[in-house]
């Protein structure tokens, strides 16, 4: 579904590449987490897959990228809209500003793709329900809180039913309970549709609960790529500016003090820690 070979990209006015010879492959239906310190190239990687580079940001771009059979570097974002869905960190800037209710806002992307109106209603309703905004369907997008706007941004992309979903910290403004629910709903939906998901998320615990695989970026390079639990518990993450979860650190400490036997893999989530202690 996604194939990246030796992709390098440098933003205009800078000399250090934001992506440095990145190569990776993602199959259909795979749920992959991306971690790394600030400025490691996580968002830039998503921009490249969505066709924003170099079309919207200019800069120097080298290498080959294939996304659902398309070349995003040449095709640009318009050609990929509908195939690749991108949820950004800042929800406010994702509101079109040209629609007066939530359902109209969610339908905006479908209008752009030319979907007949009869097919819009069901999809809009389903997307709003998925993020828990059905009750506010008639309200203005500008009247929402930051967390609600983030749910709206997510619904606006999910309604497009993309084959590939790029989530750049999509729950940063949600409370923990709301964020967990949203991520679980997205996971269930994407699993059902065999959507390929690339998730950037600071909360490794959630990432581990849903991602099959994790990729670590550092200074624009892929420095680790493998099963999520293995990657997200690796001690090398500390030096890369990525904080492992409290469950990982507690279990590691317990193993160090010989309080528990050394497991095959340290836990990342509470559930995995509970299994280890049983």
């Amino acid at each position: 579904m996604i194939e990246v070979n030796d992709l390098s990209y440098t933003y205009p006015g800078t000399t250090r590449p934001a992506l440095d010879k990145v190569s990776l492959r993602l199959g259909e239906g795979e749920f992959v987490g991306v971690v790394g310190a600030n400025g490691s190239g996580k968002s830039t990687l998503c921009y490249a897959l969505a066709g924003f580079l170099p079309t919207l940001y200019q800069g120097e771009c080298h290498g080959q990228v294939q996304v659902a059979g398309l070349d995003p570097i040449r095709a640009g974002p318009s050609a990929l809209a509908g195939t690749v869905g991108f949820v950004f960190q800042d929800p406010f800037s994702q509101i079109s500003g040209a629609r007066f209710s939530l359902e109209e806002e969610v339908a905006f992307g479908l209008e752009n793709l030319g979907l007949p109106r009869e097919q819009m209603a069901g999809r809009v309703k389903e997307a709003l329900a998925l993020v828990g905004l059905s009750d506010l369907a008639g309200r203005s997008p500008f009247e929402l809180s930051g967390g609600e706007q983030q749910r709206l941004a997510l619904a606006s992309i999910l309604v497009l039913q993309p084959q590939i979903l790029l989530l750049d910290e999509p729950t940063s403004q949600l409370d923990p309970v709301g964020a967990k629910k949203v991520i679980e709903s997205v996971d269930a939906l994407t699993a059902e549709r065999r959507t390929t998901v690339l998730l950037i998320e600071q909360r490794l615990e959630w990432m581990a609960a849903h991602a099959d695989r994790a990729i670590v970026l550092d200074a624009g390079r892929v420095v680790a790529d493998g099963p999520a639990r293995e990657i997200l518990t690796a001690p090398s993450l500390d030096a890369l500016g990525v904080r492992r979860t409290r469950y990982t650190l507690a279990a590691e400490s317990a193993v160090g003090r010989r309080l528990i036997p050394s497991p095959d893999h340290l836990p990342v989530t509470l559930e995995q820690a509970a299994v280890l202690l049983r």
Partner: peptide
Amino acid sequence: METDARAVALEARGFGKPGPKTSWAV
């Protein structure tokens, strides 16, 4: 900066996609 970010987000939702568009409102 906000305008720039919104322009990018609009592209991701197919705003610049050529071809006929439809309408939610009747």
